[in-house]
Amino acid sequence: MIVGLNHYLVLSAVLFAIGFFGVLLRKNTLVIYMCLELMLVASTVALVAFSRYNNTMDGHVFVFFILTVAAAEVAVGLAIIVALFRRRQTIQVEELNALKN
């Protein structure tokens, strides 16, 4: 069986959906963050597959930038989580309801 562009796109969609379900279902902020990373990576799979099948380099360069932005995002996000834990002593989302009501 020939592996075409559709296979890679379906893989990307499934990975993105798993990350999205993780964000919806989990209560731990750190795990939610990991699932966000998973969604970013899933989008890079689609970009690289499109780039490969259309014979261009642009998708690769975009993935380059996505990697950089993801690294910066992880650094800032984890710093926020640590600051939050320092003040509230918890990282469970249902206990972080200061903005509710």
């Binding site: 990991m34 990576v41 690289v48 597959a49 690769h60 380059f64 990697l67 992880v74 650094a75």
Partner: peptide, 26 residues
Amino acid sequence: IFVLLDAFLLAALMVFVYAGAVVALF
């Protein structure tokens, strides 16, 4: 998967940046 798509540099970067830095930070 990136290696299968002939994106060798991105595969290496993926392992370095994500597996090396991000997961270690996590």
